[in-house]
Every structure is written in C-alpha cells, then in structure tokens.
Design a protein around this nucleic acid. Structure first.
Lengths: 97, 97
DNA sequence: GATATATATTGACATCCTTCGATATACTGG
DNA sequence: CCAGTATATCGAAGGATGTCAATATATATC
C-alpha cells in the first residue's frame, strides 16, 4: 500500500520525536522561527534538522520564508484545519473552525 | 532520539495507510468490529492485519475484547481526548472535552 | 571577487517497518 | 479427543527512514 494519501503524509511527518519538537516550538512561538534555533532543541546535527524541516514542508505542515541568509519557519495556515478534519474522520470529533 | 513518548507512539500508530483505514472503519461503526472484517478493507494478509492491530493496541488507540473465537476491536475510550490534547500542543487548538 | 555564515544536498550506513508464508495458539462443536 | 475456524506469533526479505560527515548553494559583507 502506497502512502500518497495527504492525511497519512501529514501524520507521518508529525510522528517523529524531532519533528514534533519542532512543531511544538513553532506552536509556542508568536511569529516565525529561524531554522538556526532548532539546532538547540534536539541533539541532532544541522543536516538532520534541515532534513526534518524538508519533510514537514513537503507534508504541508510548515511554511518557510527567506530573510537574507536566514530562513524562517512557521506553522502552515491550514495546519489546524487539516488536523481537526483528520480527527473528525477518526473519532467523530467536532470541527472547531 | 528515542520514541518512548506516548504522543509520538500514538501518532506513529496512526500514520500508516492500513492502520488509518482500520481506525476510520472503527470510527464509522456504532459498536465494535470483528477482526475478521478488516481483512476486506485493505489488500493485505491476515497476519499483516493482526500485526497492525497489535500496533494500534500497544499505542492505546484501540481496545480488544474476545467473544468466543472472534475478537472485537473498538476505538479506545480516551482516544479522542488524546488526539485533541496533542492537537492543542501543536496548534493551540481548543480542548473539546 | 573573496571570505564568512546559513541552509540544503549528497552519499553512506544502520536501524526500523511493512509484508508475507509458515506455523502456533485459542476456542467451538461434534 | 479431533477437526475446523479465528487470531497471533515467528522468521525472513525488501523497502523506507533517521542520522551523520562532507560538500554544495545562497546570501551578506568587505
């Protein structure tokens, strides 16, 4: 069975210790977060962080924006909606917005 | 980084095409579902279904109950709560109940 | 253009995951 | 106890994934 399904792709993106740390750091930050700030949250190398950010980007969980040399990441605008929709399909949870 | 985290374990359990099919079938069924009924939902063998059910069980996503030769599965009672709590930590979603 | 810094890509390796066939276990009914 | 059915476990094969060191690319500054 292939995983071309966008829901599965998003869930697979979230289901990793490093990537969930990244997402939580993004959720707890008002604006966007510089990629260089993720290296401290987890004990992994810079290429590994870059790899995880790519997975999150391709799943549509985060967006990125370059400002000079730095690249800033933020939660994707429709991330909350997608999460809630998946939850609704799994447990009959109410749609929040 | 290890994945002893229960949140990550639950997400990893959901993040699979076969297992999300199983969960959706459970969510759309009023009561519990016989394990023998999952073999039809996906094109995988019986041992594979059994393996996926074990993953879901160990993650706390589903519960199982034997009735004679058959084993019936249902969504775990606190699945919806856990899903919502994880969502709240990821996107500031409101807690539903 | 040269240097410095931030981020991405490549290639390699180890580990984990999905899947299956074969087999074992559990229960029912004769 | 035996035969039949439902489910689980085992062992192996193949593919996917996480990680790093080395390197490449992009941008800023001098």
């Amino acid at each position: 069975m292939k995983n071309t399904n966008p829901d599965v792709q998003l869930l697979q993106a979230i289901a990793d210790p490093v990537r969930i740390s990244i997402l939580r750091q993004l959720a707890s930050s008002p604006g966007s977060v510089c990629a260089c700030d993720f290296t401290e949250c987890c004990t992994v190398s810079q290429p590994t962080i870059s790899h995880h950010l790519k997975v999150l980007r391709e799943a549509g969980a985060v967006t990125s924006e370059r400002r000079g040399t730095f690249i800033y990441y933020a939660l994707s605008p429709d991330f909350a909606r997608r999460w809630t929709r998946i939850g609704a399909s799994l447990a009959g949870l109410v749609q929040v917005a």
